[in-house]
């Protein structure tokens, strides 16, 4: 695979090129290329095991890709400029701080209150002033409707509330890009709506988001682009209106038959 060098489209917040990743002999990503433009929401769909989580984890180098490159607002992630020397631990940490991540199982820090969860990384990783961070965190909690929970520990929250904290925690870093890995899959059905509503507000408010989801309603209504992965490859991309009503590939048709009821 030839690696493209040179500048990326300045409107591209995320530019993934020719990413490959194997675990042993299991090829999980097989040359994935994908872009997310500023202010756009891209939904990543695909059957279980198709490599969606691995792709997200590669974006912030929680998993080290074998080949390919990732640019965040034109700056290479994981490798120093030139793409030969890997970033140091602290360079990588600073790069990761530019990307917000929301997890399927929330992954909140249980020894910290809701507010402390939000301000932890902005204060200790980004070294911003405490007063400023607290003020912003309180505004974010208001936005996700959890002002009254700010001094509560996560174990007192419902799943939907936990995930809204998870989203607010990611936003507190003022990330250039938000990654969501099945943010509603661990929720009771009646709690999915409150989280989807927050994500819709974000998408409409101009956040740049890459969302792995099985919520076809969210993808159809909110995504600017839908990307279908299968077997570690991108098999179809398109506008949601096109993708859901008029899929071009057999894989997409099979996927829609399986995952979209009626």
């Amino acid at each position: 695979m030839v690696e493209h060098v040179g500048s990326t489209n300045p409107e591209c917040v995320l530019d993934i090129r020719g990413l490959t990743k194997s675990f042993g002999t299991n090829v999980v990503l097989d040359g994935v290329s994908l872009t997310v433009e500023r202010g756009k929401t891209v939904c990543l769909l695909g059957p279980s095991g198709s490599g969606k989580s691995t792709l997200l984890r590669c974006v912030n180098f929680l998993e080290k890709p074998d080949q390919g490159s990732i640019y965040l607002s034109g700056r290479r992630i994981g490798m120093r400029e030139g793409g030969v020397i890997p970033m140091s631990t602290s360079e990588l940490a600073q790069a990761r701080a530019r990307i917000g991540m929301v997890f399927q199982h929330f992954n909140l820090w249980p020894h910290l209150t809701v507010l402390q969860n939000l301000i932890e990384a902005p204060i200790h990783v980004q070294r911003r002033s405490r007063d400023e961070v607290v003020a912003e965190a309180e505004m974010l909690l208001e936005r996700v409707g959890l002002t009254d929970k700010k001094d509560v520990f996560p174990n007192r929250l419902s799943g939907g509330q936990k995930q809204r904290v998870g989203i607010a925690r990611a936003l507190a870093m003022k990330p250039e890009l938000l990654l969501f890995d099945e943010p509603t899959s661990a929720l009771d059905p009646e709690l999915v709506g409150e989280v989807v509503a927050v994500m819709k507000t974000l998408a409409e408010g101009g956040s740049t988001m890459l969302v792995v989801t099985h919520e076809m309603g969210f993808a159809r209504e909110t995504a600017n682009e839908v990307v279908l992965m299968d077997g570690g490859r991108v098999v179809e991309k398109g506008q949601p209106s096109e993708f859901f009503t008029n899929p071009k590939t057999d894989r997409a048709r099979q996927f829609l038959q399986r995952y979209v009821s009626a």
Partner: peptide
């Protein structure tokens, strides 16, 4: 490992993860 993964993805270095997330618990 979940909360450590979150700490990593928020840009915490190993030392910071130990000091702020692991040790207090």
């Amino acid at each position: 490992p979940d909360q450590l993964e979150a700490a990593r993805s928020f840009g915490m270095t190993p030392a910071l993860r130990f000091r702020r997330i692991i040790f207090p618990q």
